[in-house]
Amino acid sequence: MSSTASAHAAHGDPHGHGGGHSGADHESAHGGHGSHPSYVAHHFDTAKQQFDTGKFGIWMFLVTEVLFFSGLFCAYLLYRAHHPEIFIYAHHYLDTKLGAINTIVLLFSSLTMAWAVRAAALGQKKVLVWMLILTLACAFGFLGIKYIEYSHKIHDGLVWGRAFNPAHLVEDYHGPDPKNVHIFFGIYFGMTGLHGIHVLGGIVVIGWLLKRALRGEFHSQNYGAVDFVGLYWHLVDLIWIYLFPLLYLIH
């Protein structure tokens, strides 16, 4: 049976391609039977296949993101295991209050992002636009607070490598003498910096979503992009949820 099928394919079934399609009108060449809406790319059969493929792809991308960060988490783990005193000592320099506020800001932005996905799926254009604007505002807020933190650290000489030159020492610390405290700040700036770059990336893609949302491109049959960016945003949030206790709340 299978060989019969292949035989047909081998010669290109002469009855199969009635319509004259010369490479020029590609889009119509294989649109299939009837409806192939403009938001479904030519190589997908249905909107559902396109949505599922996109979802599969974004999850895989998130796996690569986790692995990308994993190198830094490994470095953290290793140095913390070998030199716990550096981490216990140096974390006192971090501003837990600002870190906590930023955690709340990001958690709230995850809520608004999730709401945006729901609004897109239900075709509520106005809600979608507002939720995206709120999410963007949170992202900018997060970076603003991070900027304040960074500038304090840099001002006090709390940086990586040989430039490490603290303006003051930690007072309430009673443990072994920590050497190479700059390693902590190398890891701190590495992890939060890479996270910050991801927040910036999030701002770009959410801005792109906002532009498309204002044009009214999203509706219940076509809201994949919002969903996928949403997943990315939740991951950025999740990574911060790990960074906050690992860097700020050490005891």
Binding site: T64, E65, S70, G71, A75, Y79, G161, I187
Partner: peptide, 22 residues
Amino acid sequence: ATPVLGITLLLLIVERLAGVGI
């Protein structure tokens, strides 16, 4: 596997340019 190479090379670049010392 490749993302791990990515972060490794990034750390190497940062190490060279900024002297992080890891």
